[in-house]
Write a protein that binds this DNA or RNA. Sequence first.
DNA 1: TTGTATGCGTTATCAC
DNA 2: GTGATAACGCATACAA
Lengths: 339, 339
Amino acid sequence: MAGIREIAEMTGLSVATVSHVINNTRQVSKRSRELVEKAIEETGYKPNRAARMLRTQQSKTMAMIIPRVRPGMSTNVFFMDVLSGAKDYLQTKGYNMIVSTYTEEEGEGTDELRDLEVLKQQWVDGILIVPNKKKQTLFADVMESGIPFVVIDRLVTDIPSPCVCSDNVSAAHKAVKLLYDSGKRRIGYIGGSPDSFTGHDRYQGYCDGLAACGLMLDETIVSLSQKHTVRSGSEGAEQLLEHQADAIFVANDVKAVGVLKALNQRGVKVPEDVGVIGFDDYEWMEISSPPLTTIRQSPYLMGQEGARLLLRRIEDPNCTERIVLETEIVRRRSHGKGE
Amino acid sequence: MAGIREIAEMTGLSVATVSHVINNTRQVSKRSRELVEKAIEETGYKPNRAARMLRTQQSKTMAMIIPRVRPGMSTNVFFMDVLSGAKDYLQTKGYNMIVSTYTEEEGEGTDELRDLEVLKQQWVDGILIVPNKKKQTLFADVMESGIPFVVIDRLVTDIPSPCVCSDNVSAAHKAVKLLYDSGKRRIGYIGGSPDSFTGHDRYQGYCDGLAACGLMLDETIVSLSQKHTVRSGSEGAEQLLEHQADAIFVANDVKAVGVLKALNQRGVKVPEDVGVIGFDDYEWMEISSPPLTTIRQSPYLMGQEGARLLLRRIEDPNCTERIVLETEIVRRRSHGKGE
DNA sequence: TTGTATGCGTTATCAC
DNA sequence: GTGATAACGCATACAA
């Protein structure tokens, strides 16, 4: 592999000059520049990242840390899309990316620790992290590491860090409103534990929405469960049915699948008897019967924006820009006739 | 950050000795070893990867190259699971991993080129690649790069490389057999283009299965389409229905979703009128009605084995071990009553 | 069993 | 505008 030295010899210039034209780091005569560029072209020279890294103490590599439900399983598709967005963006800026997952359940894999070691070895220049309330120590470690980071998919206000997330509150609010406009008056809620970030916000939006519609919160038609499973959706639906819900806002499409399943099995007509709105718009929701009305987020964009913010944060350590992405409500059939 | 030098001073030993105990690379007195280990413990010393890399010319980083349908979208869940398996395994061996995606459609993103540059800069010690017939140049570049690689999810026999894949042929064969045992006699096929690797093998297995059951291949109940979409599944189903198929083996669960959708809409009873078997067992297939009988692969294991093979290949450049993973047929309801 | 010294390919600090 | 040259932190050939 050709090195900077060869180029210097070829051109009759010094390594210093060569380095400087490569990095645009000081004035260079036009002639020298052209000479060097030509030589680089001919030799196919590429700077050695390891050497550069050793010298500059930065790796041109970012890390993304995302949760997965349990070891031996991959993370959910939503985060994969976020990842793609971030990766694509960073690539255009000359950065690599490594991805690290952690398990939500406590005490499980000790895997994540090893990754953090890597980060601490000045390997990564920045971190995109999706924190989790159950794994606070990881987040604490990241904060303490001194490595620039931005928080993804959670709105943080208590620490001066940039973040990007969806507007979960208003999304849920909109959903309730739409159900109301479809004539529903006993609008129930099925969602995740409110002490998860998104779970909290969506529940909040649900409550706001009820209030805005002049409806009372009735806890008998609210089902909160940590499990992101089809089954828990079905169970929730059965509970709500017993208490005469005529609409259900499900804060998660996996659960929405369970809800529809339960409803169909019992012969409940959707949306006539019970309106349903989901959250996430996974591709495969097409198949549901009836087609599910759901909230669509922009995971790819979220990744891009997160990456952009991270780069900014590195340049300006005081940057605390917070981006809240709008959601879109995809009207199919399950919500009813409301516009 | 403490360096090897500090440790040498602390212990009164030379850097050489310290280095050697760290790498177990030559005999060291027990006393020295303990001294060094203690010092490392105290200081929290971690070797600097950049320096090590520069010195040894290897990065302790692997790459995984996987397809995605189009730019701006993430790859499918199957490969994400493969990725997790590989990553977890490599992590235990002290390797990092970077993942690179390429788009299947020709001429789209030029993204992948940039990643290949990186690989060629002696960055990665090895590559896990999921090749694609439509993107032969990429694969050719990888082969030519001289970097050790193993092929994932495709059985290669024409080149002396290790690979790991599922036994697609026998999986399809088994599916046909099961449909036959359920009393079906006009067993159709809906799958991907036979000039994709897996598409070819699954179609092959379908034909084998028919033959083994004494059934004739009837092309009017075969639908081949490149598109991995729900819609293409529905279209295929309609075609097959017109030609009196009484069973359908669908070589892909996304399409299976479309098939069920079409069948349900037309009031065709599954499995009584038409038996259906899918391929992949995505988690969300639970929701289908009726529950889908499908072929389950082991993506996570595939990733692990691929990583293991890669490590072996690096040690022994002549290693050409080929692993074919068994599949499991998950009997739910859609196939009929066969055992 | 241990130590000394060199170089991996860059960037950056001087001096010119 | 340009050129020597010293680090960056480690692994290793060679000496002892």
